[in-house]
Design a protein around this nucleic acid. Structure first.
Lengths: 207, 207
DNA sequence: AACGACATGTAAACAGTTACATGATTCA
DNA sequence: TGAATCATGTAACTGTTTACATGTCGTT
């Protein structure tokens, strides 16, 4: 149960706009047509075959003079129905494994200078991403309803990354205060509370 | 290259606080001792075996009267060294596949009412998470340096989720405006721009 | 005797990436 | 001729979850 293979639906969604070949799909994803999704050929082709077998997409030899070996896939009515039904169902979330937080959680094992470096690198990455996302927003300023939805998804990324940049700022301050107060010497011993004390009782960070 | 198996380091980090059994590690992760990380037995035991083989952890039969079959693992000095070195290296990010955004990106295929429902469900989940994270913050109000680092990671989650709740608010407004303006009829035809127009040219959303 | 917590593991399946194999067309 | 792009695929590997198998200890 569970995992209704979301990647399958990402491919169907691309097919819903126009018939495409596996190669086209890869290109569309590389161009970030859906900027928060990626797939490799090793996924795309097998899924396309499966879609055809299930009657959700139709395989068609589409030989142009230029490229004789193209196989385009077109979403069938039943494929479109299944896609729409999936789109309507509540969106699931996935647990995140955030490397930065794992490192920061055990910050007491390394020098505060190293923690600061970690945060600063991370912050710079987020700042760069925000710039790219904002530039992209301008390219979706059209009236088309599809542009409006694209803008919403781009703003999700911007909102999220702006919040993280703010968090980085605050965390840097805190780390600097910690370093000055001298409380920040890295803990060498293995001790510490194995029971209680450091458990959280919250659900995993999910998006 | 690439993937230096982060999960291995998550386990080593837990071991750095105290020797533990595989069962203990699972329990610690379930209690969200590292609230943004999870693992299953199918991962834990093989990794523990590997750690022992590589000399990064030491396997020790620890039979209490109560439970005679415990095998605790203790981080060796070389294990500690490797962990610390990894902690110092810049944190990598991972591409996110956010189901909500995939659905919203193709919102034109479903009714605006469905989009609103999607967002509202998502918003509620984030609000609940924020509450849990905030309750948890209080439990880490100690002076211990480890508490300070735990607070930073919790605040990351809170900052992120608050931003998303704000985004949900704005998006709901926009969706309602869209619905009123009548521009929101779901697109039935397959048409649309297969080339250009909807590509983004940004890197994938990463954390 | 039955149940829940403690404890250790494996097998199978799934999701995803990387690297490889193959071959046509187009353009410099 | 050689490189880039178009095009389709497979094999191997990694990471991860789920379900299963097994057994002990303590409590009701």
């Amino acid at each position: 149960m569970a995992q209704h293979n979301k990647t399958k639906y990402a491919i169907m969604a691309l097919l819903s706009e126009a018939p495409r070949t596996g190669y086209d799909i890869k290109k569309a994803l590389e161009a970030n047509e859906i900027y928060f999704w990626s797939e490799s050929y090793g996924q795309i082709y097998p899924i396309l075959h499966k879609l055809a077998k299930e009657g959700l997409a139709e395989k068609r030899k589409a030989s142009t003079e230029r490229h004789p070996n193209r196989t385009v896939y077109e979403l069938t009515p039943s494929g479109r129905t299944e896609l729409v039904e999936w789109l309507k169902r509540p969106a699931g979330t996935i647990p995140l494994r955030i490397e930065l937080l794992l490192k920061l959680r055990y910050g007491h094992l390394i020098d505060p200078a190293n923690c600061l470096k970690l945060i600063e690198d991370y912050r710079q990455g987020q700042v760069d991403d925000i710039e790219r996302l904002e530039r992209q927003l301008d390219k979706h300023s059209g009236d088309d309803i599809r542009d409006a939805y694209a803008r919403m998804t781009l703003r999700y990324g911007i909102a999220l990354k702006r919040a993280l940049v703010e968090w980085c700022r605050g965390t840097v301050d805190e780390l600097e205060a910690l370093a000055e107060s001298g409380a920040a010497e890295s803990v060498k011993g293995g001790g510490g509370a194995p029971d209680g004390g450091f458990s959280c009782g919250v659900t995993l960070l999910q998006l």
